[in-house]
Protein backbone atom coordinates (compact mmCIF):
# COMPACT_ATOMS: atom_id res chain seq x y z
CA UNK A 1 0.00 0.00 0.00
CA UNK A 2 2.78 2.40 0.95
CA UNK A 3 4.64 1.40 -2.20
CA UNK A 4 1.53 2.06 -4.26
CA UNK A 5 1.16 5.52 -2.74
CA UNK A 6 4.81 6.32 -3.37
CA UNK A 7 4.60 5.21 -6.97
CA UNK A 8 1.52 7.31 -7.52
CA UNK A 9 3.37 10.24 -5.95
CA UNK A 10 6.18 9.73 -8.44
CA UNK A 11 3.73 9.78 -11.34
CA UNK A 12 2.68 13.22 -10.20
CA UNK A 13 6.04 14.74 -11.19
CA UNK A 14 5.49 14.73 -14.98
CA UNK A 15 1.86 15.73 -14.45
CA UNK A 16 3.01 18.65 -12.33
CA UNK A 17 5.36 19.86 -15.08
CA UNK A 18 2.54 19.67 -17.57
CA UNK A 19 0.31 21.62 -15.24
CA UNK A 20 2.93 24.33 -14.71
CA UNK A 21 3.36 24.71 -18.47
CA UNK A 22 -0.38 24.97 -18.92
CA UNK A 23 -0.72 27.53 -16.13
CA UNK A 24 2.10 29.64 -17.58
CA UNK A 25 0.67 29.44 -21.10
CA UNK A 26 -2.84 30.35 -20.01
CA UNK A 27 -1.71 33.32 -17.98
CA UNK A 28 0.40 34.67 -20.84
CA UNK A 29 -2.19 33.95 -23.50
CA UNK A 30 -4.73 36.09 -21.67
CA UNK A 31 -4.98 39.61 -23.08
CA UNK A 32 -3.64 42.52 -21.04
CA UNK A 33 -0.21 43.59 -19.92
CA UNK A 34 1.00 43.47 -16.35
CA UNK A 35 3.04 46.65 -16.64
CA UNK A 36 0.34 48.84 -18.17
CA UNK A 37 -1.90 47.91 -15.25
CA UNK A 38 0.47 49.38 -12.64
CA UNK A 39 1.75 52.47 -14.39
CA UNK A 40 -0.36 55.53 -15.01
CA UNK A 41 -1.67 55.77 -18.59
CA UNK A 42 0.56 58.81 -19.29
CA UNK A 43 3.78 57.22 -18.02
CA UNK A 44 6.79 57.84 -20.27
CA UNK A 45 7.81 54.92 -22.44
CA UNK A 46 11.26 54.56 -20.88
CA UNK A 47 9.69 54.00 -17.43
CA UNK A 48 7.48 51.29 -18.88
CA UNK A 49 10.46 49.68 -20.59
CA UNK A 50 12.51 49.84 -17.42
CA UNK A 51 9.80 48.14 -15.40
CA UNK A 52 9.40 45.57 -18.13
CA UNK A 53 13.10 44.76 -17.95
CA UNK A 54 12.99 44.78 -14.14
CA UNK A 55 10.26 42.13 -14.04
CA UNK A 56 11.77 40.22 -16.94
CA UNK A 57 8.80 40.62 -19.26
CA UNK A 58 11.11 41.71 -22.09
CA UNK A 59 12.57 38.20 -22.44
CA UNK A 60 11.11 35.61 -24.84
CA UNK A 61 8.36 33.43 -23.28
CA UNK A 62 10.38 30.16 -23.03
CA UNK A 63 13.05 32.03 -21.10
CA UNK A 64 10.43 33.55 -18.85
CA UNK A 65 8.99 30.09 -18.23
CA UNK A 66 12.34 28.60 -17.27
CA UNK A 67 13.17 31.52 -15.00
CA UNK A 68 9.81 31.08 -13.34
CA UNK A 69 10.32 27.29 -13.00
CA UNK A 70 13.77 27.83 -11.46
CA UNK A 71 12.58 30.23 -8.77
CA UNK A 72 9.49 28.13 -8.15
CA UNK A 73 11.50 24.96 -7.64
CA UNK A 74 13.60 26.93 -5.20
CA UNK A 75 10.46 27.50 -3.15
CA UNK A 76 10.17 31.14 -4.20
CA UNK A 77 7.25 32.18 -6.37
CA UNK A 78 8.56 35.63 -7.25
CA UNK A 79 7.26 39.00 -6.20
CA UNK A 80 3.80 40.38 -6.55
CA UNK A 81 3.66 43.23 -9.02
CA UNK A 82 0.68 44.74 -7.24
CA UNK A 83 1.88 44.74 -3.63
CA UNK A 84 5.60 44.13 -3.91
CA UNK A 85 5.33 41.34 -1.33
CA UNK A 86 6.61 37.81 -2.05
CA UNK A 87 4.00 35.78 -3.92
CA UNK A 88 4.60 32.88 -1.55
CA UNK A 89 3.36 34.94 1.40
CA UNK A 90 0.35 36.27 -0.45
CA UNK A 91 -0.75 32.89 -1.79
CA UNK A 92 0.12 31.01 1.38
CA UNK A 93 -1.96 33.26 3.61
CA UNK A 94 -4.94 33.27 1.29
CA UNK A 95 -4.66 29.55 0.77
CA UNK A 96 -4.78 28.83 4.52
CA UNK A 97 -7.88 30.99 4.88
CA UNK A 98 -9.60 29.16 2.06
CA UNK A 99 -8.58 25.75 3.42
CA UNK A 100 -10.07 26.56 6.82
CA UNK A 101 -13.36 27.47 5.22
CA UNK A 102 -13.26 24.52 2.82
CA UNK A 103 -12.62 22.03 5.61
CA UNK A 104 -15.48 23.42 7.66
CA UNK A 105 -17.82 23.28 4.67
CA UNK A 106 -16.69 19.72 3.86
CA UNK A 107 -17.34 18.55 7.41
CA UNK A 108 -20.80 20.11 7.44
CA UNK A 109 -21.79 19.04 3.94
CA UNK A 110 -20.41 15.50 3.98
CA UNK A 111 -21.62 14.47 7.41
CA UNK A 112 -25.07 15.88 6.78
CA UNK A 113 -25.17 14.32 3.31
CA UNK A 114 -24.25 10.85 4.62
CA UNK A 115 -26.98 11.03 7.26
CA UNK A 116 -29.66 12.47 4.97
CA UNK A 117 -28.77 10.31 1.96
CA UNK A 118 -28.70 7.11 4.00
CA UNK A 119 -31.97 8.02 5.71
CA UNK A 120 -33.63 8.66 2.36
CA UNK A 121 -32.33 5.38 0.92
CA UNK A 122 -33.60 3.44 3.94
CA UNK A 123 -36.87 5.38 4.18
CA UNK A 124 -40.00 3.39 3.52
CA UNK A 125 -42.27 6.41 3.58
CA UNK A 126 -42.12 8.32 0.37
CA UNK A 127 -42.46 11.57 2.33
CA UNK A 128 -39.01 11.25 3.94
CA UNK A 129 -37.44 10.39 0.61
CA UNK A 130 -39.15 13.35 -1.07
CA UNK A 131 -38.07 15.81 1.61
CA UNK A 132 -34.44 14.72 1.38
CA UNK A 133 -34.47 14.72 -2.41
CA UNK A 134 -35.91 18.25 -2.34
CA UNK A 135 -33.17 19.42 0.03
CA UNK A 136 -30.61 17.97 -2.36
CA UNK A 137 -32.23 19.66 -5.32
CA UNK A 138 -32.36 23.01 -3.55
CA UNK A 139 -28.71 22.60 -2.58
CA UNK A 140 -27.54 22.22 -6.15
CA UNK A 141 -29.88 24.68 -7.78
CA UNK A 142 -30.05 27.72 -5.47
CA UNK A 143 -27.30 30.18 -6.45
CA UNK A 144 -25.01 30.13 -3.43
CA UNK A 145 -23.95 33.78 -3.68
CA UNK A 146 -27.65 34.74 -3.54
CA UNK A 147 -28.10 32.51 -0.52
CA UNK A 148 -25.03 34.15 1.02
CA UNK A 149 -26.58 37.59 0.65
CA UNK A 150 -29.90 36.38 2.08
CA UNK A 151 -28.05 34.86 5.04
CA UNK A 152 -26.28 38.15 5.68
CA UNK A 153 -29.55 40.10 5.48
CA UNK A 154 -31.38 37.73 7.85
CA UNK A 155 -28.73 36.81 10.41
CA UNK A 156 -26.53 39.90 10.41
CA UNK A 157 -28.67 42.84 9.36
CA UNK A 158 -32.09 41.88 10.73
CA UNK A 159 -31.31 39.63 13.67
CA UNK A 160 -27.81 40.86 14.37
CA UNK A 161 -26.69 37.43 15.56
CA UNK A 162 -23.65 36.89 13.39
CA UNK A 163 -20.98 39.10 11.83
CA UNK A 164 -21.64 39.77 8.14
CA UNK A 165 -18.10 39.73 6.80
CA UNK A 166 -14.42 39.31 7.43
CA UNK A 167 -12.07 36.73 8.82
CA UNK A 168 -12.46 37.62 12.46
CA UNK A 169 -12.54 40.50 14.95
CA UNK A 170 -10.94 43.69 13.66
CA UNK A 171 -7.24 44.35 13.79
CA UNK A 172 -6.39 40.70 14.21
CA UNK A 173 -4.59 39.38 11.17
CA UNK A 174 -4.80 35.73 10.18
CA UNK A 175 -7.18 33.02 11.19
CA UNK A 176 -6.99 31.39 14.62
CA UNK A 177 -9.07 28.68 16.20
CA UNK A 178 -11.18 30.41 18.83
CA UNK A 179 -14.82 31.16 19.46
CA UNK A 180 -14.64 34.64 17.94
CA UNK A 181 -13.21 33.41 14.67
CA UNK A 182 -15.65 30.51 14.55
CA UNK A 183 -18.54 32.95 14.77
CA UNK A 184 -17.25 34.68 11.66
CA UNK A 185 -17.08 31.35 9.86
CA UNK A 186 -20.67 30.25 10.35
CA UNK A 187 -22.38 32.13 7.52
CA UNK A 188 -19.70 31.53 4.84
CA UNK A 189 -19.54 27.86 5.80
CA UNK A 190 -23.30 27.43 5.44
CA UNK A 191 -23.33 29.20 2.09
CA UNK A 192 -20.34 27.27 0.81
CA UNK A 193 -21.63 23.87 1.92
CA UNK A 194 -24.89 24.07 -0.02
CA UNK A 195 -23.63 22.74 -3.36
CA UNK A 196 -21.54 19.85 -1.99
CA UNK A 197 -24.41 19.03 0.38
CA UNK A 198 -26.84 18.74 -2.51
CA UNK A 199 -24.50 16.76 -4.74
CA UNK A 200 -23.37 14.40 -1.99
CA UNK A 201 -26.86 13.76 -0.62
CA UNK A 202 -27.98 12.63 -4.04
CA UNK A 203 -24.88 10.50 -4.52
CA UNK A 204 -25.16 8.84 -1.10
CA UNK A 205 -28.87 8.23 -1.52
CA UNK A 206 -28.61 6.55 -4.92
CA UNK A 207 -25.51 4.54 -3.99
CA UNK A 208 -26.95 3.24 -0.73
CA UNK A 209 -30.27 2.49 -2.37
CA UNK A 210 -28.56 0.46 -5.04
CA UNK A 211 -26.57 -1.49 -2.47
CA UNK A 212 -29.62 -2.18 -0.33
CA UNK A 213 -31.12 -4.04 -3.28
CA UNK A 214 -28.14 -6.36 -3.53
CA UNK A 215 -28.41 -10.01 -2.62
CA UNK A 216 -25.69 -9.86 0.02
CA UNK A 217 -27.85 -7.60 2.17
CA UNK A 218 -30.51 -10.32 2.24
CA UNK A 219 -27.75 -12.84 2.94
CA UNK A 220 -26.59 -10.74 5.91
CA UNK A 221 -30.14 -10.70 7.27
CA UNK A 222 -30.34 -14.45 6.70
CA UNK A 223 -27.36 -15.01 8.97
CA UNK A 224 -28.89 -12.98 11.76
CA UNK A 225 -26.89 -9.74 11.57
CA UNK A 226 -28.53 -6.79 13.29
CA UNK A 227 -29.40 -3.58 11.45
CA UNK A 228 -26.34 -1.71 12.70
CA UNK A 229 -23.98 -4.37 11.45
CA UNK A 230 -25.74 -4.45 8.08
CA UNK A 231 -25.47 -0.66 7.86
CA UNK A 232 -21.71 -1.00 8.36
CA UNK A 233 -21.53 -3.41 5.41
CA UNK A 234 -23.67 -1.12 3.27
CA UNK A 235 -21.63 1.99 4.06
CA UNK A 236 -18.33 0.27 3.37
CA UNK A 237 -19.70 -0.77 -0.01
CA UNK A 238 -20.96 2.73 -0.71
CA UNK A 239 -17.68 4.32 0.34
CA UNK A 240 -15.62 4.05 -2.88
CA UNK A 241 -18.24 5.76 -5.04
CA UNK A 242 -19.04 8.41 -2.46
CA UNK A 243 -15.35 9.12 -1.77
CA UNK A 244 -14.71 9.74 -5.45
CA UNK A 245 -17.46 12.35 -5.62
CA UNK A 246 -16.39 13.82 -2.27
CA UNK A 247 -12.88 14.27 -3.63
CA UNK A 248 -14.16 16.27 -6.58
CA UNK A 249 -16.39 18.38 -4.36
CA UNK A 250 -13.59 19.06 -1.89
CA UNK A 251 -11.38 20.05 -4.83
CA UNK A 252 -13.94 22.60 -5.93
CA UNK A 253 -14.09 24.07 -2.44
CA UNK A 254 -10.33 24.35 -2.17
CA UNK A 255 -10.27 26.35 -5.38
CA UNK A 256 -12.06 28.91 -3.28
CA UNK A 257 -15.33 30.38 -4.31
CA UNK A 258 -14.74 33.83 -5.76
CA UNK A 259 -18.39 34.72 -5.24
CA UNK A 260 -18.71 33.56 -1.65
CA UNK A 261 -15.37 35.04 -0.63
CA UNK A 262 -16.34 38.33 -2.23
CA UNK A 263 -19.74 38.47 -0.48
CA UNK A 264 -18.17 37.78 2.91
CA UNK A 265 -14.87 39.64 2.24
CA UNK A 266 -13.09 36.43 3.14
CA UNK A 267 -9.41 36.86 2.21
CA UNK A 268 -8.97 33.47 0.53
CA UNK A 269 -7.63 32.24 -2.80
CA UNK A 270 -10.80 33.12 -4.66
CA UNK A 271 -10.52 36.66 -3.39
CA UNK A 272 -6.81 36.80 -4.19
CA UNK A 273 -7.23 35.37 -7.69
CA UNK A 274 -9.99 37.83 -8.39
CA UNK A 275 -7.89 40.84 -7.47
CA UNK A 276 -4.82 39.39 -9.19
CA UNK A 277 -6.79 39.10 -12.41
CA UNK A 278 -7.97 42.70 -12.18
CA UNK A 279 -4.47 43.98 -11.42
CA UNK A 280 -2.90 41.75 -14.06
CA UNK A 281 -0.64 40.53 -11.28
CA UNK A 282 0.87 37.69 -13.29
CA UNK A 283 3.24 36.26 -10.63
CA UNK A 284 0.42 36.00 -8.09
CA UNK A 285 -1.93 34.55 -10.68
CA UNK A 286 0.64 31.96 -11.72
CA UNK A 287 1.61 31.08 -8.19
CA UNK A 288 -1.92 30.73 -6.88
CA UNK A 289 -3.09 28.65 -9.83
CA UNK A 290 -0.07 26.39 -9.54
CA UNK A 291 -0.57 25.83 -5.80
CA UNK A 292 -4.24 25.05 -6.36
CA UNK A 293 -3.44 22.63 -9.14
CA UNK A 294 -0.92 20.87 -6.91
CA UNK A 295 -3.42 20.62 -4.11
CA UNK A 296 -6.02 19.23 -6.44
CA UNK A 297 -3.58 16.57 -7.59
CA UNK A 298 -2.72 15.63 -4.02
CA UNK A 299 -6.39 15.41 -3.17
CA UNK A 300 -7.05 13.08 -6.09
CA UNK A 301 -4.13 10.94 -5.05
CA UNK A 302 -5.45 10.74 -1.50
CA UNK A 303 -8.91 9.72 -2.71
CA UNK A 304 -7.41 7.05 -4.96
CA UNK A 305 -5.32 5.63 -2.14
CA UNK A 306 -8.26 5.56 0.27
CA UNK A 307 -10.43 3.93 -2.40
CA UNK A 308 -8.00 1.09 -2.93
CA UNK A 309 -7.84 0.64 0.82
CA UNK A 310 -11.63 0.34 1.10
CA UNK A 311 -12.41 -1.63 -2.03
CA UNK A 312 -10.29 -4.76 -2.59
CA UNK A 313 -11.62 -5.10 -6.14
CA UNK A 314 -9.71 -2.04 -7.33
CA UNK A 315 -6.41 -3.28 -8.67
CA UNK A 316 -3.30 -1.58 -7.38
CA UNK A 317 -1.44 -2.16 -10.63
Amino acid sequence: MLLYALRRLLYLVPVAFGVSLLVFALVHLAPGDAISAIVPPDAPQEVVDKLRTYYGFDKPLPVQYFRWMLVTLGGDFGTSIGTGRPVFEEVGGAFLNTIVLAIAACIVAFSLAVVLGTAAAYARSRAVDRIVTSIALIGVSVPHFWLAIVLVIVFSVELGWLPPMGLGPENVAGWRLDLDHLRYMILPTVALSMIPLGVMTRTVRSTVKEILNMEFVTALQAKGMNDGRILLHVLKNAAPTCLAVMGLQAGNLIGGSILIETVFSWPGTGFLLNSAIFRRDLPVLQGATLVLAFFFMMLNLTVDVIQTMVDPRIKRG
Binding site: E215, F216, A222, K223, G224, D311
Partner: peptide, 27 residues
Protein backbone atom coordinates in the same frame (compact mmCIF):
# COMPACT_ATOMS: atom_id res chain seq x y z
CA UNK B 1 -34.03 -10.05 18.15
CA UNK B 2 -35.80 -13.40 18.41
CA UNK B 3 -35.90 -13.65 14.62
CA UNK B 4 -32.25 -12.58 14.32
CA UNK B 5 -31.29 -15.26 16.84
CA UNK B 6 -33.02 -17.88 14.72
CA UNK B 7 -31.46 -16.73 11.44
CA UNK B 8 -28.09 -18.28 10.78
CA UNK B 9 -28.18 -20.10 14.10
CA UNK B 10 -31.00 -22.65 13.92
CA UNK B 11 -31.90 -22.16 10.27
CA UNK B 12 -29.40 -21.02 7.67
CA UNK B 13 -29.46 -20.50 3.98
CA UNK B 14 -27.33 -21.06 0.89
CA UNK B 15 -28.03 -18.64 -1.92
CA UNK B 16 -28.20 -19.22 -5.63
CA UNK B 17 -25.44 -16.86 -6.64
CA UNK B 18 -22.46 -16.92 -4.26
CA UNK B 19 -20.85 -14.08 -6.22
CA UNK B 20 -23.54 -11.68 -5.06
CA UNK B 21 -24.45 -13.27 -1.72
CA UNK B 22 -21.05 -12.44 -0.22
CA UNK B 23 -20.23 -8.83 0.58
CA UNK B 24 -17.52 -7.97 -1.98
CA UNK B 25 -15.49 -5.70 0.32
CA UNK B 26 -15.04 -8.08 3.26
CA UNK B 27 -12.87 -11.21 3.28
Amino acid sequence: RALANLRGRRVSMIFQEPATAFDPVFT
